[in-house]
Design a protein around this nucleic acid. Structure first.
Length: 492
RNA sequence: GGGGCAUUAGCUCAGCCGGUAGAGCAUCUGCCUUUUAAGCAGAGGGUCGAAGGUUCGAAUCCUUCAUGCCUCACCA
């Protein structure tokens, strides 16, 4: 116990607490310091506050001592506010407290008068100061902050504390999600929540996380997508629904992938993939207006105009234009082999039309799509939940929105024929039996639901994290997640 | 999982061809009543990621491992 205590707090902890108590100062007093003024308010409405008494609380982030006076900066509500204290404007006790007992990193509350220094900085001249919470660990270096990315992610609180630009990324994230939610509600969609623990996972092609429920004595999966539950709601008569939440995929971690990520899915009865294009454009328009204050973002060295309308291209056109290949011919193994050879590409997965199309799409087409582009009309084998373009077609009504080379959205006219759905599931099961562990599972309960009649429906999914990356110019998904997944470590 | 790079004081980083471990910030002690990366003078602070190996001698060279980043592959 005492060894652990010493290891955690160091040998000086007791003398520190004693020194505070000798000066009648508690390290963690029972004070919550209410009736505060906002630092942001004081700084943006200086004229109203000048000469007035204010109460402000925050964390001390720098201290500049000048003998019998001093300046310090506190971080209060995300805003930096300078405080000034001098010996002859406060009690002996209070002066000693600010000068000696309260150090950089501590949380304090001050009362004082607002003024401007000769360098025109808005400052509070302190009359009284109280320690609200003592910091036992020192803050990182004030100029460079933390540059070790691992420490930044593991101790995100320090990252946020030290780096205003990091705080801004997450404020932007909040504004983007709010803009999406607000526009959807304004358009008449109802926000819902569906299970993240599912006994059959589906709605995407991916490997799941597996867990176990003790009381039910059964395996459960963390959802890879909310899709199949949201479509049950459409069957249930909730005609316009959306959900913003986490999905979980047990796959690699990369600049664009985190095991858990935020997805927005919406479904609309009597809609199709064209109506999904139009709602997608409304969403991007709202983000530009409410979270960007403009039309353009800088991403990977490109200037991207995110204000709709967006370019539209069929997959066939895009393959012809960017890859000089006939998408239909990719179903012939020999043709595909020659093409891949010519382009110096290799395909790890077994040959099929779907895999060949996917390979060329990822390698040769999407990297060229910098400005927002709807790629539409997809091969059926890639899309087991989308509706065919006609009875015997090998094509489905589906689009993906690609921006900055990133897939940020995916939508289709939902497959609402239960017999066709049965056959698609059966086809996926065959693929699974041949070793494709990302094939869609056979979901009998979903087919039972479809037998009651799914209206013609359009559905859309947006990768929220990737959209945030785009609008904040961050090239790594970890920079837009507060706590990205890292390997477990004991110490921090 | 494959390949490349990194790991030195609390933080940010130097450390050349192998020869007793360095700076700035932070901390501590003085001085300093409009500074803002405040300043001046002084002090303390290290199992050089871990374990082996080569060597008279390793932060430095070699091997293995750990962690992170980048890159490749797949889902948004």
């Amino acid at each position: 116990m005492s060894e652990k205590r010493k290891e955690l707090f160091g040998p000086e902890i007791d003398s520190l607490i004693k020194e505070l108590e000798d000066h009648k100062t508690e390290a963690y007093p029972l004070i919550h310091f209410n009736d505060r003024d906002s630092a942001d308010d004081i700084k943006s409405n200086f004229e109203q506050f000048e000469g007035k008494k204010v109460r402000v609380a925050g964390r001390l982030i720098t201290k500049r001592l000048h003998g019998k006076a001093g300046f310090a900066t506190m971080l209060s509500g995300g805003v930096k506010l300078q405080i000034y204290y001098r010996k002859d404007a406060m009690s002996e006790e209070a002066f000693h407290r600010v000068k000696k007992l309260i150090s950089v990193g501590d949380i304090l509350g001050v009362e004082g008068t607002v003024f401007k220094t000769r360098t025109e900085e808005i400052t509070v001249e302190v009359q009284d100061a109280v320690l609200l919470s003592k910091a036992l660990s020192p803050l990182p270096e004030k100029w460079h902050g933390i540059e070790n990315v691992e420490v930044r992610y593991r101790q995100r609180y320090l990252d946020l504390l030290m780096h205003e630009d990091v705080r801004n990324v997450f404020y932007q994230r909040f504004k983007i999600i709010k803009a999406i939610r607000d526009v959807l509600i304004a358009e008449g969609y109802m926000e819902v929540e569906t299970p993240t623990l599912q006994d059959i996972y589906g709605g995407a092609l991916a490997k799941p996380f597996v867990t176990f429920h003790n009381a039910l004595d059964q395996e459960l999966f963390l959802r890879i997508a909310p899709e199949l539950y949201l479509k049950r709601l459409i069957i249930g008569g909730l005609e316009k629904v959306f959900e913003i939440g986490k999905a979980f995929r047990n796959e690699g971690i990369s600049l664009q992938h985190n095991p858990e990520f935020t997805i927005m899915e919406l479904y609309e009865a009597y809609g199709n993939y064209k109506t999904m294009m139009s709602i997608t454009e409304k969403i991007f328009d709202a983000i530009c207006t409410h979270a960007l204050n403009g039309n353009e973002v800088q991403f990977k060295g490109h200037t991207i105009n995110c204000r709709p309308p967006f370019k539209k291209m069929t997959l066939e056109e895009a393959f012809q234009h960017y890859a000089s290949v006939d998408i239909h011919q990719l179903c012939h193994q020999e043709y595909t082999r020659e093409y891949l050879c010519k382009e110096e590409m290799r395909m790890d997965k077994p040959f099929s039309w779907a895999n060949a199309v996917d390979e060329v799409l990822k390698k040769k087409v999407e990297p060229h799509l910098i400005q927002p582009t709807f790629l539409y009309d997809y091969p059926l084998p890639l899309s087991p939940l989308a509706k065919k373009k006609s009875r015997d077609s090998q094509w489905v009504e589906r689009f993906q929105l690609v921006v900055g080379g990133l897939e940020v959205g995916n939508a289709f006219t939902e497959l609402n024929d239960p017999v066709d759905q049965y056959e698609r599931f059966t086809g996926q099961e065959e693929a699974r039996s041949k070793g494709d562990d990302e094939a869609h599972t056979f979901d009998q309960a979903y087919i039972e639901a479809m037998k009651f009649g799914l209206p013609p429906t359009g559905g859309l999914g947006l990768g929220i994290d990737r959209i945030v990356m785009l609008f904040t110019g961050e090239e790594s998904i970890r920079e837009v997640l507060l706590f990205p997944q890292l390997r477990k470590r004991e110490d921090i």
